[in-house]
């Protein structure tokens, strides 16, 4: 489904700040895989997301989706395969536009946008139904400006917008990290449910070790631009946070250092 082969990325080449962000990364996701990604600060998790989504282009290697090489396509052309939720709840929605307008933009993801009216009665009914599945009452506020919603509500809407058109690949970049624990838990539950129901091929970066173990069918660990550990479904079922941390220390030779790490 998604395949990265020997992808490398260098930051600030030729300057004193030169840094290898990704080093020779190869990764293959099968259809329906839900992979969680953990790693310390600067491990390259966000760079990995940016390379897949097209915000950055790799200096070496290839990215393929369904066999097609997409590594040189600009970000906006990849959106027909990729749905994304960002860490910042403000990033995934347009604040001065209404909930239904935001959904209409998500609905036309990756399609040619023409001069057809964006909100038609058929679409509105569908948006309402999709919103009601979130179970947080947004279906009654179709014409409210998104800027008036709380961070949790905006993130739930972002999640819906990224998923309801069933993208081939769903990228979640620490999408619960900026929320308080109660709201983060709600978004986590919604994510789990939506990914299962739609059987989406998903890559999720998280700082929450417990979440990384509980969600998905595969866990990969990154350090200094490399994938240092790939844990399959079988092992993941019995894995504990302590074991995971110990394993990290053993392979990388240092403690998992991250000021935001949540152990569970």
């Amino acid at each position: 489904m998604l395949e990265l082969s020997r992808v490398s990325k260098l930051f600030n080449p030729g300057t004193p700040d030169e840094k290898i962000a990704l080093h020779d990364i190869s990764l293959k996701l099968n259809p329906g895989d839900f992979v969680t990604v953990i790693g310390s600060n600067g491990a390259g998790k966000s760079t990995l997301m940016n390379i897949i989504s097209g915000v950055m282009k790799p200096d070496a290697g290839e990215v393929r989706i369904e066999g097609a090489v997409i590594s040189q396509l600009p970000e906006f052309r990849r959106s027909r395969w990729i749905g994304r939720v960002f860490q910042d709840p403000m990033a995934g929605t347009a604040p001065h536009m209404t909930i239904e307008e935001n959904l209409a933009m998500a609905y036309t993801r990756g399609k040619q946008r023409g001069l057809g009216l964006s909100i038609k009665s058929g679409r509105r009914a569908m948006f309402k139904e999709e919103l009601s599945k979130l179970g947080i009452g947004l279906e009654g506020r179709l014409r409210a400006k998104v800027g008036l919603l709380s961070g949790g509500e905006r993130q739930a809407l972002s999640l819906l917008m990224a998923t309801f058109t069933k993208p081939q690949i769903l990228l979640l970049d620490e999408h619960t990290a900026a929320l308080d624990p109660a709201r983060a838990e709600l978004i986590t539950r919604l994510t789990d449910r939506i990914v299962r129901e739609l059987n989406l091929t998903t890559l999720m970066v998280t700082h929450n070790m417990e979440q990384a173990i509980r969600l998905g069918n595969r866990l990969i660990m990154m350090d200094k631009g490399r994938i240092i550990l790939d844990i399959n479904e079988q092992r993941k079922k019995t894995l504990t946070v302590e074991e995971l941390l110990a394993e990290f220390e053993q392979i990388s030779g240092h403690k998992l250092s991250d000021d935001r790490v949540v152990l569970g």
Binding site: R80, P95, M97, A104
Partner: peptide, 22 residues
Amino acid sequence: RTDLGLALRATGDNARMIRSFG
């Protein structure tokens, strides 16, 4: 209020978001 018009408005409101939607 067309699909294209919404994309135009979102460009000024949240360019990163509308790029991620193509």
